[in-house]
């Protein structure tokens, strides 16, 4: 078991270091809310549309999902701003 854990950890660190580059960071930084919505909100369930909720409801869902889905602060800010602007 310990070996599996060790391999997993080494693998993770390896993947992390391979994937490190300033261009990638800038790419993620520059993603608009609509794209982050498309990429993230389908990871666990089907993607809701902006029209499914009103602004107040979206802001409640925002906090619920940010915590439950472990979204980064920036990500969730952009996604829910988009949802509130397009409903």
């Amino acid at each position: 078991m310990k070996t599996i854990t060790a391999i997993a950890i080494i693998g993770l660190i390896g993947l992390a270091s391979v994937s490190c580059s300033p261009e990638r960071a800038a790419l993620v930084e520059g993603k608009p809310g609509v794209q982050l919505w498309g990429e993230n909100c389908m990871r666990c369930h089907n993607t809701p549309s902006p029209a499914d909720f009103n602004d107040t409801e979206w802001s409640t869902v925002e906090m619920h999902m940010r915590v439950r889905a472990n979204l980064t602060a920036k990500e969730s800010e952009k996604i829910f701003e988009f949802l509130r602007s397009a409903n």
């Binding site: 993947l15 992390a16 994937s19 490190c20 580059s21 790419l27 980064t72």
Partner: peptide
């Protein structure tokens, strides 16, 4: 719990 970006990849912890 929380989440953060590290050069384009994302980590979350609890």
């Amino acid at each position: 719990r929380g989440a953060f970006n590290v050069s384009g990849s994302k980590f979350n912890y609890s």
